[in-house]
């Protein structure tokens, strides 16, 4: 186990945990800068490859930290990196959540809840738009997104069945050369 390297990783990710306002995407560019420019741990092309893998994997996008940690220091690096990125922010979320739970059902919290609802709506649409932009979606992806939304809102079909169909269709198109990867 490369302990000094693992300690370096913790020192990179732990501060990012507490400045990642608005979600993980706000710190992706800083991660890239730290990995490539500041510490020279990998080339820019290597970072971009790992970023692409993290986009394809399930789970939250911030798990890219696990991949970066693994690349530099194996499984121990992956575990240390993800703990460094998640623990500080989670302790804060825990404290906020405890306060919230304590006031659950109070008239004041009901007002706060109703006030946060429209803000959440705006943030959800903004998040969806940034996912579309990040994936450089073409017309086929946009159509797939629209159809999925329609199907689930109207309950026309199980979303899992729809995803299976989409994966097959895109896979066949990709194999036939009708679709460029990531395009």
């Amino acid at each position: 186990m490369d302990l000094p390297r693992i300690w370096d990783l913790v020192q990179v990710f732990a501060p990012l945990s507490l400045v990642s306002f608005g979600g993980g995407q706000s710190v992706f560019s800083e991660m890239q800068r730290q990995m490539v420019d500041v510490h020279h741990w990998m080339s820019n092309a290597e970072y971009v490859d790992l970023f692409a893998i993290s986009r394809a994997a399930p789970g939250p996008g911030t798990l890219i930290a696990a991949l970066l940690g693994w690349k530099l220091a194996g499984w121990a690096g992956a575990i240390a990196s993800i703990l460094a990125l998640y623990v500080p922010s989670s302790v804060l979320a825990y404290a906020a959540g405890l306060w919230w739970r304590h006031h659950r059902g109070s008239p004041m919290l009901t007002i706060v809840q109703n006030a946060l609802m429209p803000v959440a709506v705006g943030l959800i649409f903004a998040g969806a738009l940034s996912l579309i932009e990040a994936s450089h979606a073409g017309w086929l992806q946009l159509l797939t997104t629209a159809i999925t939304c329609l199907v689930v809102v109207r309950r026309l079909m199980s979303p899992y069945l729809l995803m299976l169909i989409a994966a097959l269709l895109y896979g066949v198109l990709g194999a036939a050369g009708g679709l460029s990867p990531g395009g």
């Binding site: 394809a56 959800i124 996912l131 994936s135 629209a146 995803m163 066949v172 990709g174 194999a175």
Partner: peptide
């Protein structure tokens, strides 16, 4: 390549699920 494009298809569906939550 087919694996990469299949994952892109899944991602497009995921954005649709997210939009549903907004709608």
């Amino acid at each position: 390549v087919w694996l990469t494009t299949a994952l892109a298809g899944l991602a497009a569906c995921g954005v649709g699920i997210m939009l549903e939550t907004g709608v």
